[in-house]
Design a protein around this nucleic acid. Structure first.
Length: 298
DNA sequence: GCGTCCAGGTCTACC
DNA sequence: GGTAGACCTGGACGC
């Protein structure tokens, strides 16, 4: 199947926009220049999608499935992949703003700025909790355990990310011992239970009428989601008003603007205030500009 | 081999 | 509202 992309879309810059493509059930297939992703369709069937870039402003999706897909399942698959790549998100105002600043003209020129996200808000939030207070290596371990031990099996090496119900059905002890989620375990469990019960309509948040501040407060009400997590989850919901500072991005900022000297968060926020509702995206791209010097995929 | 520190934070109790 | 201390885990590092 194919999906049309906009003229300001860049396949590899979206995949390498942040760490998500390194976390299962995403995987980068460097040999075939594709992004693999195992999806769980709404009827529960797992499918494996191989997504590649076509030169004619289209994404090509090869779908491996154990049963022939119905028309509705084909539509669902393309809709979900389009959401992961943010294909319907209009960033023209953002690119217009970047062109006003010579220092940031590289962003529109290289079509950076779309941040890869998961097919579901649930997956994005659980993964974000798994990035807190630990090394990236431990995040990879926790997410891999979640998928391997709780995901739906497509084949021996491909499983889906577990559903809220699947996660809500395990014990805190299981999350601690088998997933290695440590003290995050009760947070993840309580979150999965809340989503399963319908008390938290998180999947509506990508097209919500709530203000960014209201969404931020909703996110902060989830135990285990603090300022860093909420700010970065908001970026994956299409809201860029928060910086989502963490120790890594702070260190990048200190090196870039203060010769490694520590400054307050308020100082960092002051610098990006001028970029208004796009400040979180300006900040993130500023901190990761050197990533775009690499030849993709890396 | 062992102990310590810290990494893409957050929560709670206390002031 | 601001802050100290506790919290899981695994890898790096020093000894």
């Amino acid at each position: 199947m194919t999906i049309d992309t906009s003229t300001d879309f860049n396949f590899w810059r979206t995949i390498y926009s942040h760490g998500w493509s390194a976390l299962v059930p995403f995987s980068v297939d460097k040999e075939n220049l594709a992004l693999n992703r195992v999806l769980s369709l709404s009827n529960g069937s797992p499918v494996l999608c191989r997504i590649a870039d076509q030169k004619d402003s289209k994404l090509c999706i090869r779908v491996l499935s154990h049963t022939p897909l119905t028309a509705a399942q084909r539509t669902e698959t393309t809709r979900r992949i389009a959401s992961c790549f943010r294909l319907t998100e209009d960033l023209s105002d953002f690119y217009r703003e970047t062109r006003r600043h010579p220092k940031y003209r590289w962003i529109a020129r290289t079509k950076a700025g779309r941040m890869l996200r998961s097919p579901s808000v649930f997956e994005d939030i659980v993964k974000m909790i798994c990035t807190t207070n630990c090394s990236w290596a431990l995040t990879e371990i926790m997410v891999r355990n979640l998928v391997e031990k709780l995901g739906n099996t497509f084949d021996d090496s491909h499983k889906t990310f577990p559903s809220p119900a699947m996660l809500a059905g395990v014990s805190e002890k299981f999350l601690r011992k088998e997933i290695k989620a440590g003290y995050r375990s009760p947070f993840i469990l309580a979150f999965a239970e809340k989503v399963t019960s319908g008390a938290l309509p998180i999947e509506n948040w990508r097209s919500s009428d709530l203000t960014t501040e209201e969404l931020f407060q909703q996110l902060r009400s989830i135990k285990g989601v603090g300022a860093y997590s909420a700010g970065n989850i908001l970026k994956l919901l299409g809201r860029y008003d928060y910086l989502g500072l963490d120790s890594w991005s702070r260190a990048q900022y200190y090196d870039l603007y203060h010769q490694g000297r520590t400054v307050s968060d308020r100082t960092i926020e002051r610098r990006y205030k001028q970029y208004g509702i796009w400040r979180g995206l300006f900040f993130w791209l500023d901190m990761t500009q050197s990533w775009y010097d690499h030849e993709f995929p890396f």
